[in-house]
């Protein structure tokens, strides 16, 4: 990530020089930094609320029950995660919240999943196969209803704002399938000989 990040910064400066937009960069850097904190603070509230509620659900045995119900599917996707590990419960909640369109709750559960997967990580700080796959699935948009896009369409005076639902579902599914397939393939390719 260090290399990519440095390259992004360097590319911005080079491109700004070519396009004669150097003056805009300083402002953009400051504005983005401020926006990142605003976004984070919104997340802080959601994380506090939902992970508190999740702790209550855990102590009531709800999370474990839910994880048991979908264990067969998740075990196939994440064979290296023990079936009764708390990461399984968090991942189930993340996927369920995504599917239901509860984006506000999906992020806290996803974040918690990543932390619990990190507890299983023998090389701290370097992504495991399970973490990479879980992230790729989340970036492929598991949500069933793209509420913000439908709202935009309604605002623009569409005759049928929600008519894109079916097409979005199919396209999302393609993205998720590719995310899983590519993650599995790259994980195998990246693994040093003799391991796994």
């Amino acid at each position: 990530m260090g290399v990519l990040w440095t390259l992004l910064l360097a590319a911005s400066v080079v491109a700004a020089a070519v396009n004669g937009r150097m003056a805009a960069l300083t402002g953009a850097a400051a504005e983005s930094a401020g926006k990142a904190v605003t976004v984070s603070l919104g997340l802080v509230g959601l994380l506090t609320l939902w992970l508190g509620l999740m702790r209550v659900a855990e102590e009531a045995g709800l999370v474990a029950a839910l994880a048991r119900a979908v264990r067969p599917v998740l075990r196939r996707l994440f064979p290296e995660v023990p079936a009764d590990h708390p990461a399984m419960g968090s991942m189930v909640l993340n996927i369920a919240a995504n599917l239901l369109g509860l984006g506000n709750a999906a992020t806290p559960f996803g974040v918690r999943s990543m932390q619990e997967l990190e507890a299983l990580n023998p090389r701290k700080g370097t992504a495991t196969d399970a973490q990479a796959l879980f992230c790729a699935m989340n970036t492929a948009s598991l949500q069933l209803v793209p509420a913000s896009v439908i709202a935009l369409r309604a605002g623009a005076g569409s005759r049928a704002p929600a008519e894109i639902l079916g097409a979005t579902l199919v396209a999302s599914a393609c993205g998720v399938v590719v995310a899983v397939a590519v993650s599995k393939l790259l994980a195998r390719a990246a693994r040093p000989a003799g391991e796994g």
Partner: peptide, 24 residues
């Protein structure tokens, strides 16, 4: 996600995620 877990080396997560975007 990686920030919360303290992971700084993403390995194949970024290419997999970007390819999924492309496929979508």
């Amino acid at each position: 996600y990686f920030g919360a877990a303290g992971v700084t080396r993403y390995r194949h997560a970024l290419p997999a995620a970007l390819l999924a975007d492309l496929a979508g």
